[in-house]
Amino acid sequence: MEAFIRPLSTRFLFEARQQLASRLFLIVTCLFYLSPMYWMVVTALKSDTELAKFPPTLWPQELVWKNFDQATKTFPFLPYLGNTIFYAAITVIGSVLSNFIIAYGFSRIKWPGRDLLFYPVIASIFIFVQFPVNPITMVPMFSFFAGLGLVNSFLPLVLPPFFGNPFFIFLLRQFMLQIPTSLSEAARLDGANEFQIMGRIILPLTRPALVVVALLAGVNAWNDFLGPLIYLQNDKLYTLSLGLTFFRTMHRIEFNLMMAASCLVVLPVIVVFLCFQRFFLEGVTLGSGK
């Protein structure tokens, strides 16, 4: 009996110690990864005098909520919020619509040259990385849209998502390839045309992947800085990302206000992320299923 218990208890002890080590490692890493956001929140709630203290206080002595109020008065917060929501919403619609249809063409219909044409999709992921605005293409694209008289409108930002994003095409194609072809064939035999198969059979089955695309596209648009920076020069059209730079260019940077404004800009992304974390965490690996 004793001989049986002892190895078992040492094993438990060993595992408990192992778990403690794991937890310690995880907590330290998490603290580091949360530090920017923690510091943002703490700073946003500090008074001017507390801000100038050294060593800095790790938690505000007094919570100054009116910093948020003041921050939103330093720049036109609500209009910029509206612009950002508009940009993100149209991007989501465009991305879901176009990438679904394109990925369908790349996976659910067999046609000669299909897999060959998919190479440029992959290649463009690896060379351009960021879509639609990136430093390699921004100069000619700006001239292009300027020639059409579209600078200082949202069109240069919201039009490209309607023409596919290689990342999303890849992700959705991988997902759709896993749906058995027999489903489409059965429907075809029943006399359904391609559009009916796409809308009635494949669309419902692809919904989880489309949610991932919608979330990623929305977050990308919300987080876009370079696009609004070059195309939106009229400050009535600014997005929140450009609004924040007001604080950067002030003569004397008021860090508590700047952090309060940052909180408000980051908060929606965090909320969306926490609500849909399963989609985010699992969405990453959706496309890597070979």
């Binding site: 995880l26 890493t29 998490c30 990864y33 949360l34 530090s35 920017p36 956001m37 510091w39 943002m40 700073t43 801000l51 100038a52 203290k53 050294f54 800095p56 977050v219 919300w222 987080n223 800085f225 990302s241 924040l244 730079t245 604080f247 950067r248 940077i253 860090f255 700047m258 952090m259 940052s262 800009v265 980051v266 992304v269 965090i270 992320f273 926490l274 974390q277 985010f280 965490l281």
Partner: peptide
């Protein structure tokens, strides 16, 4: 832990950069 470690990668880079200006402030930074 996964949620926490993934979290900063959904935060906008421009906002993270703003935070870093203050976090890395030579006199008052954390």
């Amino acid at each position: 832990y996964r949620v926490i470690l993934y979290l900063p990668s959904v935060a906008p880079v421009f906002a993270l950069s703003m935070m870093m200006i203050w976090l890395l402030n030579p006199r008052f930074g954390l």
